[in-house]
Write a protein that binds this DNA or RNA. Sequence first.
DNA 1: GCCTGTTCATAACCCTGCCCTATCACAGAA
DNA 2: TTCTGTGATAGGGCAGGGTTATGAACAGGC
Lengths: 298, 298
Amino acid sequence: MNRLSMKHLRYFEALAQRRHFGRAAEDCAISQPALSVQIKELEALIGAPLVERSARRVHLTGLGEVFAERAGEILRSVDELEELGRAGSGPLAGRLRIGVIPTVAPYLLPDLIKALAQAHPELDLRPRETVTQRLIEDLSEARLDVAIVALPISEPFLHEVALFDEEFVLVRPKEDAAKPVPSADMLRTMRLLLLEEGHCFRDQALSFCNMAPSLQGELMEGSSLATLVQMVGAGIGVTLIPEMAVAVETRSASVSIAHLGPEPPKRTIGMVWRRTNPLSDQLGGIADIVRSVAMARR
Amino acid sequence: MNRLSMKHLRYFEALAQRRHFGRAAEDCAISQPALSVQIKELEALIGAPLVERSARRVHLTGLGEVFAERAGEILRSVDELEELGRAGSGPLAGRLRIGVIPTVAPYLLPDLIKALAQAHPELDLRPRETVTQRLIEDLSEARLDVAIVALPISEPFLHEVALFDEEFVLVRPKEDAAKPVPSADMLRTMRLLLLEEGHCFRDQALSFCNMAPSLQGELMEGSSLATLVQMVGAGIGVTLIPEMAVAVETRSASVSIAHLGPEPPKRTIGMVWRRTNPLSDQLGGIADIVRSVAMARR
DNA sequence: GCCTGTTCATAACCCTGCCCTATCACAGAA
DNA sequence: TTCTGTGATAGGGCAGGGTTATGAACAGGC
């Protein structure tokens, strides 16, 4: 006889309702002696009698009634708790903490949130925007469920799925529109505006130009693509932005867009999550939705 | 594997706090495999994973966190419930439903309530005033814990203890004060005012006068001793009242009190409760308090 | 790359707790 | 009294939940 158990509560509740050991035992699908013993044990546990036994009828003591009431409340909570799994009936119910890198988030998230809310209305979406490294850390510490980043990540503990490829396009001042499109090598000689350290997109752009990260002395840095484009519009230099950002960012700037050929630079955006995440299977479905949203934006 | 148990909740709570199977198992004073099995069973029961196992660290799933929170609340309630017995530390904690007959209640209850509140501050007193028969019924149905009535009751299921004896005194109009005190036989010829049917005091008075209950045609009836005394003051007849009522009832009426002798009628007031009441022992203590209050009123 | 330590899962065994049936004890009713 | 209904007690058996031993997966150091 150790501590209060669920059985004690359920048996006592039955007894409180029926006020009859035999009848209550029946309700509990056990024999009358079994119930008697359990109730007795419960009273010993509480240290005070809860029921008053008389030959003809069973009554609750004052304490017994208080106990029955509280026990009932607890049991209802427990019943509810048992239903918790089934209640979140859909495969993906509850919170989904999704991280997105800054060079994707503003262009993808608005549509994505709408699409996810439609596909999984019971989903409590918690988006978060930050650089890749932080996203990986957050995934590792289980502060995030999934992240949308540029692949590859190559973290052994993460599962990766590709979502889509996106091209990098050159943003020049409007008056340069007629000029020939520079090659990657030529870019290196131009004043190239890039995001500050930590953004993966910065590294991707540098890699396309075959520039060592240490050459950055010559460069200007901005904290967002919007800033970079506005600076280009002001004639300060040129920059690269991902295709998806074009529609939003060039609307209000006097810049021209040029596709870099013949082998345009591009990156692969993908979704990653911990291999150990028990929802792994369902997360593939989420990835499909992200993919379709990204395609629709073309 | 049947239903959710206290162990499931406690083990899961430990795991949620420690985020480590071995450590949590230690907290629960069981072995790590035992905890693993229970958690696994719990997840099967809920129908969804609650924890995410990885080699280095354990995380809760979204559902797991919700579950942990709710489980914690439930466990706190249960802990509290376990304390219920010990909390009502005194032998007589909680509700005490006490019934008193109407010819005693107004003269005893005020002092009694004060005395009981002082002796047992944790006592939640629920007094009730009604005629003997109803009191007995209420005791039988466990709607009352104890009753203060005129003895004997002679119900086999009730335990009786005597509290005190009280004399009946004659109430006459003030102008009769000088007249000789009538004998019991003489009373029968006077206009005797009595309580209405159902009050035990009525029967006791009738019995003193050796009058058959059927002779009531000649009598006046009142619904309370106060009414009777006022009517006597108005010269309508005479009445008997218990000694304890004298101080209160004759204060504001022009009546005179006479002791009937040489063998004055009296009745024994006592306390009764169900033999099966588990608090039987403690109730003797309550009776002692009632007794001392009654004595003090002399 | 291989070895080692950590951690959770699985397996095999065992014991305690719980339930069953049978029976007793008691109180009311006939 | 005897009979009936009710709760308590006794003794035995099954299984849930515990134990230890071991396996599998993974991280980190050499």
